[in-house]
Design a protein around this nucleic acid. Structure first.
Lengths: 195, 195
DNA sequence: TAGGTGATGACATCGGATGTCATGAGGTGT
DNA sequence: ACACCTCATGACATCCGATGTCATCACCTA
């Protein structure tokens, strides 16, 4: 038999989310989490850089996944079509069965300003991955920066609304709607300053 | 004569930026900052909620200012024109003489992940102010959320590039360029999914 | 069976953050 | 002129998040 129980990391993640949801993030100490998981405080910080990170480590794979999709997209696609292609693949393949977990997690994150900051940083990492994807496709720097961040906005607003609607519409459907809505808002009026 | 030296807050802000720039954010303790400013640790935390906040308190007035501009914009303007009108006023009136300060501050923020997170939260507050401005003008919720965040993206990318270029182009000019570029990228290609 | 590897435990310490009470200058009212 | 209030700050105590260091011991490999 093993010296320790298996999946220390997963046990810490589950114990943390449960305690945060029950008694609040600030009101939960790391020793409480580790006691619940049968580990020590020091071990918690070996798995997660800080107390917040335990809520975000699970989704670390998303930025590289999007980067891979963008790299594999047909070379002839422009920035907008590369974006729709990649975002729609993500929406259609990576969020099955996570609705309840994500709703519980969002409630905890919304209850604490520090967690909200960490979430924004994770969203920025996603935006940077998309930006790098554009750069690798030869898109100029300014367009890459702008469209990378815009893509992250569409993704995050869609995910948020998907949770709001409790899954009654698909994430893919919402993302397509929001991409189209963005296009209409920015394109409907003639430019005020033409050169 | 006053019991204490005047402008405790300003003295703390200046001492903090100077120490952070000279020896790093993590390597600077709050007692060091307060010693430099001739105050105590407890007083620091009376003025700023935490050590990071001392770098951001100065720009707290921006979101309400944008909200005011949006409220005062002609009622017949659509979302896009309201946005350009307000952003361009901000760009043209609120950043004179701040270039060197903002460059020094950005260097400190970039050196520390925690400061980057705090900056992102401040940018989100700006996005939320813009979103609320749209809601108050009767724009629907989804469009308000999307365009509010898009506006913050354009603003932040422009500000960042203004600092990169050392002020050789005006912030106003850059913002107009980036608005136009966004419009072209999203509008140039026909929608992949038309209804 | 001997030694290496790697995850964990145990202990110590630093500093960020907060609660509480004391202090004393400036303002206010009578 | 006197008493009182207000409020920014000082002084002190404490909690806990975060990190460095060394010991421990199952598992793997040769």
């Amino acid at each position: 038999m093993s010296r320790w129980q298996p999946d220390a990391r997963g046990r810490l993640e589950r114990a943390a989310l449960e305690l945060f949801a029950r008694q609040g993030f600030a009101e939960t100490t790391v020793p409480e989490i580790t006691a619940e998981a049968g580990l020590t405080t020091r071990t918690f910080f070996r798995h997660f850089a800080d107390k917040r990170e335990v809520l975000f480590a699970a989704e670390a794979g998303l930025p590289p996944f999007i980067a891979q999709l963008m790299a594999e997209a047909p070379a002839e696609l422009g920035p907008y079509d590369t974006l729709t292609h990649s975002l729609e693949t993500v929406a259609a393949t990576r969020f099955d069965g996570l609705l309840d977990y994500l709703i519980a997690r969002r409630a905890v994150i919304r209850s604490d300003a520090g967690l909200r900051e960490r979430e924004l940083r994770k969203q920025e990492v996603l935006a940077e991955a998309i930006e790098q994807g554009f750069l690798d496709r030869g898109v100029d720097e300014v367009t890459s920066a702008l469209v990378g961040r815009m893509a992250a906005v569409v993704f995050n607003v869609s995910l948020d609304r998907w949770l709001d609607l409790g899954g009654s519409r698909t994430l893919l459907d919402l993302m397509q709607e929001h991409l189209a809505l963005t296009r209409v808002t920015f394109a409907a009026t003639p430019p005020a300053h033409s050169s």
